[in-house]
């Protein structure tokens, strides 16, 4: 049952798939980040993966490519699940890595993508409202990156010690 999804996706997507694997029962597709919207549209419409369960990112500091945006999909009809990963390199000029937004396909991706932008600093093209969501606007940096120290606080307000 599970392998069937992977098989169907492979036939449908062809070259955009970089690799596939199944580990502990989780089927994974690694795809080209530049084609993510097209891949997702095909998976949604043709393979039946119509439910975006989760969208997150992992920072593999020191590895090339450094980031991986991870999508978890589910089919509401058959209950099959699929993980799609899009590796992303950090641009040489130090700007934020970017890929296309999947908000046109799933409205629920809106907040997930804002969260990834907030915590990992990954830009999403065509996102309707890419603002910080968990941290405040004054915050500098992207805290879930591995090179952000855990206890570097950026206080907004502190008490007057002479109060």
């Amino acid at each position: 049952m599970s392998l069937a999804v992977l098989q169907r996706a492979k036939e449908l997507l062809g070259d955009t798939i970089k690799s596939t694997h199944s580990y502990r029962g989780d089927d994974t597709l690694v795809v080209d980040a530049a084609a993510i919207v097209e891949v997702m549209r095909l998976l949604k419409d043709e393979v039946g993966m119509d439910f975006l369960v989760d969208l997150t990112c992992v920072d593999y500091l020191g590895r090339e490519p450094r980031f991986e945006v991870v999508y978890h999909l589910r089919s509401m009809k058959t209950g099959e699940r699929l993980r799609v990963k899009a590796p992303l390199d950090e641009p040489e000029d130090g700007s934020n890595p970017a890929l296309d937004s999947v908000v046109p396909l799933w409205a629920g991706a809106n907040w997930f993508e804002r969260e990834v932008w907030d915590l990992y600093g990954i830009r999403f093209h065509n996102h309707p409202d890419l603002r910080r969501i968990l941290m405040y606007e004054e915050f500098v940096g992207h805290p879930l990156r591995k090179d952000y120290p855990k206890e570097r606080r950026q206080p907004l307000v502190r008490r007057d010690p002479n109060e």
Binding site: F51, W106, G108
Partner: peptide
Amino acid sequence: ERAIQYGW
């Protein structure tokens, strides 16, 4: 449909 779209 909207509930599924939003991931409810």
